[in-house]
């Protein structure tokens, strides 16, 4: 935390598609930096002091919920945990996350995309007996290492950074994307999910699935939770190649 006061220059994408006649544009706002200031704090300051109409999404403001991904000086990231002090020249350019429906300004509809993704990959345990389990009895045992490994893949917060950083997604609008692959890898690893490889193939065995991926790994570079995209995509691909 530095003590010297400086004036930050924010260039922010503004456009409200619901407002008649509104056009996309960049607007500059100046904010006096405070120690420990994050982009979350700065944007709220702008909203409260300068322009109450500016739209953006924060929920946890602690890097946990995945609401606030946006493009900060060219890089998709979680804005709430990004300190303004990281930017030496004090110039910060904010754009909404590409690849998602724009709600307005910096707010995009990642929720809609992620629900569709979950439905597409059937993001739940497939086990016909799961609803008849007797919960009075001891739970089914699980190897402690397997439990830990599943958690490692489940740490995704559905922020959408990987989607926005993916070149294939830009060319193929229906491309499942890294977030979908990660979810599939998570369930493929889980002994409670009884889906067969064939069933997984049905979901991802085409060019909109894992065969479309060019492994340029924008996803791995920008995932704020540092999920192991490279190894998991490789794993899924090997698994799928073995099938047909």
């Amino acid at each position: 935390m530095s003590d010297q006061e400086r004036v930050l220059k924010f260039q922010i994408f503004r456009y409200n598609p619901l407002k008649k006649g509104d056009k996309p544009r960049m607007v500059t706002y100046e904010v006096t930096e405070a120690p420990g200031m994050t982009i979350f704090i700065a944007l709220n300051d702008i909203r409260e002091q300068q322009d109450p109409s500016i739209q953006f999404d924060f929920v946890c403001r602690a890097g946990i919920c995945g609401s606030c991904a946006m493009v900060v000086n060219g890089q998709p990231t979680l804005a709430c945990r990004t300190l303004t002090s990281l930017y030496e020249d004090g110039e910060i350019k904010l754009l909404p996350l590409p690849g998602f429906e724009l709600i307005g300004d910096l707010s995009v509809n990642t929720g809609k995309f992620m629900r569709a993704m979950s439905e597409r990959v059937e993001s739940w345990i497939h086990d016909t007996r799961a609803d008849d389990v007797n919960y009075e009895k001891l739970e089914e045992r699980m190897d402690p290492d397997v439990a830990d490994e599943i958690y490692e893949l489940e740490r995704c917060v559905e922020c959408g950074c990987c989607v926005s950083a993916c070149a294939t997604k830009r060319m193929r609008p229906d491309f499942l994307s890294a977030v979908g692959f990660m979810r599939l890898a998570r369930f493929a690893l889980d002994p409670r999910d009884k889906r067969t490889d064939d069933e997984f193939y049905e979901i991802m065995g085409d060019d909109d699935g894992v065969f479309g991926c060019m492994t340029l790994l924008g996803c791995e570079d920008y995932c704020p939770k540092d999920l192991p995209h490279q190894t998991q995509i490789a794993y899924l691909r090997r698994k799928m190649v073995l099938i047909r």
């Binding site: 739940w124 345990i125 086990d127 799961a130 389990v133 919960y135 009075e136 009895k137 001891l138 739970e139 089914e140 045992r141 699980m142 190897d143 402690p144 439990a147 830990d148 599943i150 958690y151 489940e154 889980d190 409670r192 999910d193």
Partner: peptide, 16 residues
């Protein structure tokens, strides 16, 4: 205890 066991069947990877 029932709630946590149900969640386990629904996919929570509880530490073991």
């Amino acid at each position: 205890p029932k709630a946590i066991r149900q969640l386990s069947a629904w996919g929570v990877p509880w530490s073991r």
